[in-house]
């Protein structure tokens, strides 16, 4: 089963995404900030990461840069889910970018297509 790492500082949104993905047959792990996300990514080797950009203390794009330094992790696809407009440009290689509140079906479709490749 593909594994998705959910990075978001809002516990309600983490829970929402986890429930949504699990209901559709994915495994999930969650992280609430950049440090935790990096650690979890290394430990769990997720197949896909959803990333919020506005995290407490640190800034989502920094996580992306740190991730790019890790040879085993740098090709992990990232989907940005953020309240910030224009987030498409914040993470250069993101597979897709969703603005909160996002369309559930669209997100599932993008996740499905990305993991099928």
């Amino acid at each position: 089963m593909p594994k998705i790492l959910i990075v978001d500082d809002d516990p309600n949104i983490r829970q929402y995404l986890a429930a949504l993905f699990e209901d559709h047959g994915y495994l999930t792990v969650v992280a609430r900030d950049v440090a935790e996300a990096l650690q979890t990514a290394q430990d769990e080797r997720p197949d896909l990461i959803t990333l919020d950009l506005d995290l407490p203390g640190e800034w989502g794009p920094r996580f992306y840069r740190a991730l790019s330094q890790e040879p085993e992790l740098k090709s992990t696809p990232i989907i940005v889910i953020s309240a910030m407009p224009g987030s498409r440009y914040a993470i250069g290689n993101a597979v897709a970018s969703f603005t909160k509140p996002f369309d559930r079906e669209e997100l599932l479709k993008t996740v499905g297509e990305t993991l099928d490749l």
């Binding site: 809002d10 949104i13 829970q15 929402y16 429930a19 309240a83 910030m84 909160k100 509140p101 996002f102």
Partner: peptide
């Protein structure tokens, strides 16, 4: 404000999703 409001609306979306799926699955805890 729009930033915070978007976060809250997403979380509210999430709760409604949980409630809907909870009803479908008859999962009282959810």
């Amino acid at each position: 404000m729009s930033h915070g409001i978007k976060g809250m609306l997403t979380a509210l979306d999430g709760s409604i999703y949980q409630l809907e799926t909870g009803l479908q699955k008859e999962d009282r805890t959810r």
